[in-house]
Simulated scan of single mutants.
Amino acid sequence: MNIEFSVRLPTDAQSVPLMRGLLRQALEHLGVAEAGIEEIVLALTEACANVVDHAGEHEEYQVDVSITDDLCRISVLDEGQGFEFDQASHTSARSPLEDHGRGLVLMQALVDNLQFVQAEDGRHRVTLEKRLSPQPHLRLLSD
């Protein structure tokens, strides 16, 4: 079964838990293992929080979600300034106790593929991909 949806959200802190809840419900509906759900939701939280923190004057951002039997792909698009991923990830690696930059380290650790690109329409896109494993089935023992 596949689920795909796209949501345009205001760049305020209240949009982050809303998006987390939508993604969690979709993953639970498809029977994804709880550990995988937690990792994906945390990575999404970091991506959305980055947009909200650095949105500047832009009023909204977009989250596109595509979930298949074996892969969850999330794209977070915004019109903010963007940044140089290689430079930011090296800075984060050198100073893990600083207040900023830990989100990049977390996202890299939680997903299988992380990309930062400028989309054709000029918006910045963060794409998170995570391979999925189904919920383990309980085997009932008969007497």
Rank of each mutant, 00 (worst) to 15 (best):
A93C: 01
L104M: 04
Q115Y: 02
G31D: 04
D64P: 00
H90E: 14
A88L: 08
F85P: 00
F83E: 03
D70V: 07
G101S: 05
T11V: 09
I74H: 07
Q135D: 06
L77G: 01
V51D: 00
V126W: 12
D12G: 11
H137L: 11
E84K: 08
L18D: 06
V7I: 15
C72S: 13
L9V: 07
H29K: 14
M19S: 11
A55M: 07
L141R: 14
F83A: 05
V32H: 02
S133T: 13
E34P: 02
V7E: 15
D112I: 09
L44W: 04
L77K: 12
E60S: 15
V51M: 00
L106I: 10
I40T: 14
E4N: 13
R24W: 03
D12H: 14
R123N: 05
L27C: 06
C72V: 15
L27F: 06
E38F: 00
V63P: 06
S89P: 00
L132P: 06
E34T: 06
N2Q: 12
S92Y: 00
G101N: 06
L77D: 12
M107W: 01
Q87Y: 07
E39P: 00
L18S: 07
V41R: 02
T91V: 09
F85D: 03
R123H: 10
V126G: 03
D143L: 10
H58A: 09
F83S: 05
I3L: 14
D64T: 07
V111C: 15
S75R: 15
E120K: 15
L77C: 12
D78T: 05
D69S: 13
H58V: 05
L104G: 07
I3C: 04
P10T: 11
L18V: 14
Q81D: 12
E60C: 08
L97T: 12
I67G: 10
L42G: 00
G122I: 01
D12C: 05
T68H: 00
D99Q: 10
Q108L: 09
S142C: 08
L27Y: 07
Q87I: 07
S89K: 11
E46C: 02
L138Q: 10
Q14M: 13
V63S: 10
Q87R: 14
R125D: 12
S75P: 00
C48G: 03
A49G: 05
G21S: 14
F83Q: 03
A13N: 03
G56L: 08
E59F: 01
S89Y: 09
G80I: 02
E84R: 11
L42Q: 06
T68M: 02
E84Y: 07
D70C: 04
D64N: 13
